[in-house]
Amino acid sequence: MVLSLWRKIRRTGRVAEPAPPPPDAAAGPAVAELAGSVQIRHVDAGSCNGCEVEIGSAFGPVYDAERYGARLVAAPRHADALLVTGPVTRNMAVALRRTYEATPEPKVVVAVGDCARDCGVFAGSYGVAGAVRDVVPVDVEISGCPPRPEAIVAALRSLTGR
C-alpha cells in the first residue's frame, strides 16, 4: 500500500505547471505585513459551487497555489484572508460579517467570481442580500463565472507577493 504510493509518486513526478512571472504590484497595505505567507479561510456565501471547483483546482497539484505561500485553513481565527464566493444570501450575511469580525488584523477580503462582485445572474433575487462588498469591505476582486484557476492563483500571488 505505502510502497505502491511511493512508486506512484516516483513515476508521476511533478505535474505542476511552470510558475508564471511574479506579480509586479502588491494589492494593498496589509500585504506587506503578511510577508509572503497568507493563510486563507474560504467562505461560501451562497455560491453555486462553480467557484469552489476552481478554487479546489487552484490548490490542486497542477496550479499548486501553496508554492506561492497561500494556504487554506479551517477557521477565521487562523486566517489572514477571506476567500468569499457567491452572492451573499440572506442566510449567510450575518455569518459572513461574523467571520470577518473573527479574523484577526491585518486582514484581506478576496471576492471570487462574478456573483461575489455584483451578484451575477442572481442579482435582484429575493434571497440575495447583495454583493460581498455590500456586507464586508473587499480588497481584491476576481472576475469570471467561474474564474479560471490561473486568475485565482494570480490574485493570491498579488497577496503573497511571490
Binding site: 481565527r77 455569518a95 459572513l96 467571520t99 469580525e101 473573527a102
Partner: peptide, 10 residues
C-alpha cells in the same frame, strides 16, 4: 474582548 467563534451561526 472578542466574540467566541461559533462558526458564524451562534
Amino acid at each position: 474582548e472578542a466574540r467566541l467563534w461559533d462558526c458564524g451561526a451562534g
